[in-house]
Design a protein around this nucleic acid. Structure first.
Lengths: 194, 194, 194, 194
DNA sequence: AATGAATGAGTGTTCATTCAT
DNA sequence: GATGAATGAACACTCATTCAT
């Protein structure tokens, strides 16, 4: 989840890190190339060595890190084999993503619809991961056959991502990772029954 | 929750409705005055009869409608006196807001941090309403004394608002109002215990 | 052939006159929007009220004035009914165009190939006018049946336009209109026979 | 007239050939260093081993080849001793220059005024060659004493160079060298008398 | 209150040029 | 001599805002 700034002698990681921070602070549209270049301590033209436009930069950051996060979520969830354990894994994935790189976590989870729509349709998103986990729980009879998985997925993703935002705004205190067990238990109760 | 377009012969409601739609589609920063004027079928200068800037327009729409929504939520929740009934009321408030004016509901619930921060600090927001409802539930011993209300508030708001987004994206089908009872039951299980 | 600067209260004629002068001095590519705006005493943005781009401005000036010049040439040539008279008419058309608006005349006659190619294929150009005049002369037995009209047209256009350039560079002195009779006579001798 | 690409192992001839082609296609100002480097298959920086700037490259190509062409014209013209023969020689010089290297011929004959003005004032240009030829014809009583040689020179240069352009645009067909005798005869009639 | 042409600071982007390798 | 990533001034163009009507 962390953009590697040490590699080689290219300026790209510095650009990406600076861009993510500014995109989260002010939004993609309100962040200027000048802002990014200054924050990354590179010239404005340097950005165009790596991307054809500001939008491409935003899309690339979003796409790569969203893919990484989806895989991370999936791995964390699948460390356990029962639904409650998996839900705790999901909660933990959100928590760890946030504690590792707050800006990046917020960027991928709260990117504007307009940016999301430019991603490839085939991309595996967090909601797909959650949906699959739930489907397997139905197959394992951990959830009733008629459960509205789309609704449940929305509630789970909403809970986890909003918690992250609440933490960022100071509404909740403490390390999110410490809250994962409780959040997992609560999500388990949320999904059970009808 | 609906912007009144009938009143007087001012062009303001047309401007606001057009603006909300465009703000949700592309974000405030990417929506131009020209876009709004064209969609509202007024001249570009007309907007400045009512607001000093595009940002003021966005803030006014957000502030007025967020206040209206918070009150609406509170009223809906307080129609019942027990926590499960109140949580269903909250879920219903989100559902009704969405079904009445989708764009407006999305705008107030997913406005970017930068826009939120320009609101008066004293404003009563949805999370305050939820927090108060939960606090009263603790007082009524419907929730344990040590419950982390800030965490619960985030989970509830996240669930309800993400459900609305899922509906807007076509991830969930059907009228959200019909799902309010189920969502209420699930939220009731979510908040209970530890 | 003269761009009208008096009409209405639009800034367009001022922009066009300034643009033509600068385009001739430095070429379209080397003339900046800022240069044009400054010379026309308007703001840079004003140009975009009338055209979508600098290239569109250049194309519009070229197209409109080339069409006007072609018609002017044709009218001047057809004032007489014999070939020598018509060739003198052509020479006079070039001379008058130059003496009326030197910049404009040079712009339309020496625009770069890249600009010419963006004009509609159907446009009636000076070479078409000359070609038609020559064809009628063949029909009237003023020229031999087998004359290579494409070659003759090139020689005539080349002579007339290069004379104009020579005048602009100070290689030839005096009013070009006074030279039209001699040029006409010489062109008449040029085209006769084989 | 041909840029030598075989010599040594320097990349210069490849650069010059690529540059001429691009300069003719799009103009000097619209041709980028990157375009040239890519077309010549060298790195962008390589150009600066040979020239201090793009303009210097353009000027050098223009100057060297214009000098070569002027000498070539002169030699071709002076192969004959009478005016008609010399005019045919001029026509042939243009034709051969074109058929040998179309891009280069167009570049030197239709370079923009701005580029021409950067050449040394003392340079012997095609128009000087033509003027001298005509002056000698006056001395030899092949032309009347009062003939306006500046005007005649412009007509001759204009005819010959426009013919070349007409060929490049497909307006005239066939090998230009085959047309030199006819063009020579016509120019001879053009210059005679008053 | 409403208009829309004009404004000009600010934006994304280009590109000639430099320089460490 | 050759390379190509990096530079940053300059460019075409945008757009919030003004103001005469």
């Amino acid at each position: 989840m962390i953009i590697d700034e040490s590699k080689q002698d290219t300026k790209l990681p510095a650009i990406m890190n600076a861009a993510v921070r500014l995109f989260v602070e002010s939004g993609v549209a309100s962040t200027t190339i000048r802002d990014i270049a200054k924050a990354a301590k590179v010239a404005e033209g340097t950005l165009y060595r790596h991307y054809d436009s500001k939008e491409e930069l935003a899309r690339d950051i979003l796409q790569k890190n969203l893919a990484t996060f989806s895989e991370f979520m999936e791995r964390k969830a699948r460390e356990k084999s029962t639904l409650p354990g998996r839900l705790e894994g999901l909660a933990r994935a959100f928590a760890e993503a946030y504690e590792e790189n707050q800006d990046l976590a917020r960027f991928i989870l709260f990117s504007h619809a307009a940016e999301m729509e430019r991603l490839p349709k085939s991309m595996r998103l967090p909601r797909h991961v959650v949906h699959d986990i739930l489907k397997e729980a139905v197959a394992a009879r951990e959830l009733p056959a008629g459960a509205d998985l789309d609704l449940l997925q929305a509630l789970i993703i909403g809970s986890c991502s909003r918690l992250l935002l609440a933490k960022a705004y100071g509404e909740v205190k403490g390390d999110l990772r410490d809250k994962a067990p409780e959040v997992g238990r609560r999500l388990a109760r949320l999904v059970e029954g009808k």
